Computed example of a mutant assay.
Amino acid sequence: MARPREFDRAEALTQAMHLFWQQGYERTTLKDLTVAMGISAPSLYNAFGDKKALYEEAVALYLTTPAVVVPQAVGEATARDVVATIFDVAVREYCSTEHPPGCFVISDPLLDEYRREGLQAIRARLERAKEEGDLPVDADVEALTDYVDVVLRGLSSRARDGADAETLRAVAEVAISAWPAGRRGARRR
């Protein structure tokens, strides 16, 4: 008869996610994980499989959290509102005390696929904005997408280095003030 688990699997997974978020996959050791999760190596293997499987499950958990910035914003009415919301959510989440600072996806090199997906979602939304006249006809959607990406990476990096929400919010306000105006009457934030 198998012994029942003596730990909360969901809590252990959250701890693993936070550790991967802080250190990345490569720098996180099995010992780091067992200490953070409060379980033995055999328990980790029995509950989650190997380190790679645990990492994949931790990433899947992360993708269900409010810390994932882009999906919360792409439905906004105007391109400016999309970008302002992206920056607002980023500032809130990158400085949250509920999890490690910064962005998990931005900070771990292994998550490049998710970074590309986020950029594609932003690019597609900005293309739509340009087609609808919400961005100037000569707007360079690739450059604007890269602009949002660079600002997000900078906000994440600064948060990881200890910058507070007030500092990041000031940067986000400067970044959004540089956003190109669309047609007259477009809603501005």
Rank of each mutant, 00 (worst) to 15 (best):
T34K: 12
T34M: 10
G38H: 07
I39S: 13
S40P: 07
S40F: 04
P42K: 06
L44D: 04
Y45P: 04
N46P: 00
F48G: 07
G49H: 03
G49I: 06
K51N: 05
A53P: 00
A53I: 04
Y55E: 09
Y55L: 08
A60I: 03
L61R: 15
Y62R: 10
T65L: 14
T65K: 15
V68D: 12
V69H: 06
P71M: 10
Q72G: 14
A77V: 09
D81R: 15
D81I: 10
V82H: 02
V83C: 12
I86N: 01
I86D: 00
I86L: 07
I86R: 05
D88M: 09
A90I: 09
V91A: 14
R92W: 05
R92D: 15
S96H: 00
E98C: 13
E98G: 13
P100G: 07
P101C: 09
F104N: 00
V105D: 00
I106D: 04
S107Q: 06
P109W: 00
L110P: 00
L110S: 03
D112A: 14
R115T: 02
R115Q: 08
E117G: 10
E117D: 14
L119M: 15
A121F: 02
R123Y: 08
R123E: 05
R123D: 07
A124P: 02
L126A: 10
L126S: 12
E127C: 05
E127S: 08
A129N: 09
A129D: 05
E131N: 09
L135S: 12
L135D: 12
V137H: 14
V137M: 14
V137C: 14
D138T: 08
V141S: 05
V141M: 05
